[in-house]
């Protein structure tokens, strides 16, 4: 009975657990042992933190009722600057502690650029009233343009090995550093959303911006914070990606924008705002990573099918989500409306 009530009040969580079980069952049935080998799962733990961090960031924009399309390109630009800084300053024969300092400074620079990018987005959207999708797509092009101009479109290799280790090292032999970073960001995001006045206001603002303004909430300030969080979180994701790749490039992770949107919609964090739970986002990230990894096990499904799979999945999820919201998954215990005849 308790379980039934939980399922009714938490439709997305229930649906996601069901979906995850289904996905696991499917790959177990079709690939069996191949799917359950340890190295495969170890690989997943290294892969999802990149776009997981980006998804957590984008979640803030979505909950506030906004959209951010620029985060991957902004992240790439800031990491290119960071990489250039590292290449310029790290010299052969330097002590590790010295290199560590340079790396930390580079990361600081990247995050600072992300903050600026977030502020620009929020000014365009909330002060100049440009529709969020348009404004952030334009900024996406601007950042991509800067990055391409700086690198002439080539990848920037030559990172200090101390930095590339981040993306490949597992602490105590089992805890990948990227995963650890993701866990930290996840806890920060969960804390902000669930236990702070900021989170409470963000949900209310996302539900009705005008009512929030009439309730003496600093709407501009809130939106700026949420865009900054979006930019900074995804910048961390890009920094992980750069470390894994061993280089920075203008168009790395270009497919992640859509993948993050897919994950959020799947988790019920719709860009209409004010909706969704962070635990559902975690479940959706894990589900998507299982699908990504599982599909790769089929030799005929090579990478050329990637767009088709993710695009198709996004459409299916979007259709499903309109059905879910029609009945109001968040309406607590509201009586179900049925028009069928009672005999």
């Amino acid at each position: 009975m308790k379980l039934k009530e939980f399922a009714r009040n938490n439709r997305y969580t229930t649906m996601l657990i069901g979906l995850l079980v289904l996905v696991l069952a499917f790959f177990s049935a079709t690939k069996g042992k191949l799917f359950w080998q340890g190295s495969l799962w170890q690989g997943m733990m290294f892969q999802f933190p990149e776009y997981g961090c980006m998804t957590l960031g984008l979640m803030f924009a979505f909950i506030s009722g906004h959209m951010d399309m620029s985060f991957v390109m902004l992240g790439n630009f800031s990491s290119i600057i960071a990489v250039k800084y590292m290449i310029a300053n790290v010299e052969e024969g330097m002590a590790n502690s010295q290199i560590g300092g340079i790396i930390l400074t580079a990361i600081g620079i990247a995050l600072a650029i992300a903050v600026v990018g977030g502020i620009i987005n929020s000014l365009l959207v909330s002060r100049l009233n440009i529709p969020p999708v348009m404004a952030t797509i334009a900024m996406q092009l601007v950042w991509q343009g800067f990055s391409t101009a700086l690198t002439k479109g080539y990848a920037l290799p030559g990172l200090p090995s101390l930095y590339t280790e981040i993306g490949h090292k597992a602490l105590f032999g089992f805890l990948p550093v990227p995963l650890l970073i993701f866990i930290v960001l996840f806890l920060v995001a969960a804390f902000l959303l669930k236990y702070t006045v900021f989170g409470e206001k963000l949900y209310m603002l996302g539900t009705n911006k005008k009512a929030a303004q009439f309730s003496a909430i600093n709407v501009h300030g809130m939106l700026m914070t949420s865009y900054i969080l979006s930019a900074v979180f995804s910048c961390v994701g890009t920094l992980i990606m750069v470390s894994t790749m061993g280089s920075a490039k203008a168009d790395y992770g270009i497919s992640y924008t859509m993948r993050c949107i897919l994950i959020l919609v799947l988790a019920g964090v719709l860009p209409d705002g004010g909706m969704g739970k962070i635990r559902d986002v975690l479940l959706a990230i894990l589900t998507i990573q299982c699908i990504a990894t599982g599909v790769n096990l089929f030799p005929s499904m090579n990478t050329y099918y990637g767009s088709l799979i993710w695009g198709g999945l996004l459409i299916i999820v979007l259709i499903a989500s309109t059905k879910m919201t029609d009945n109001g998954p968040k309406k607590l215990k509201a009586p179900k409306k049925t028009t069928q005849k009672v005999a």
Binding site: V197, E200, K201, Y203, M204, T207, N208, K210, A211, A212, F214, S215, A216, I217, G274, M275, G328, K330, K331, L332
Partner: peptide
Amino acid sequence: TEGLCLQQPIADNIALASL
């Protein structure tokens, strides 16, 4: 449009201006 966040709990709406 100006007074309420309809799809949010009653309690949160009441507390909104005195958080």
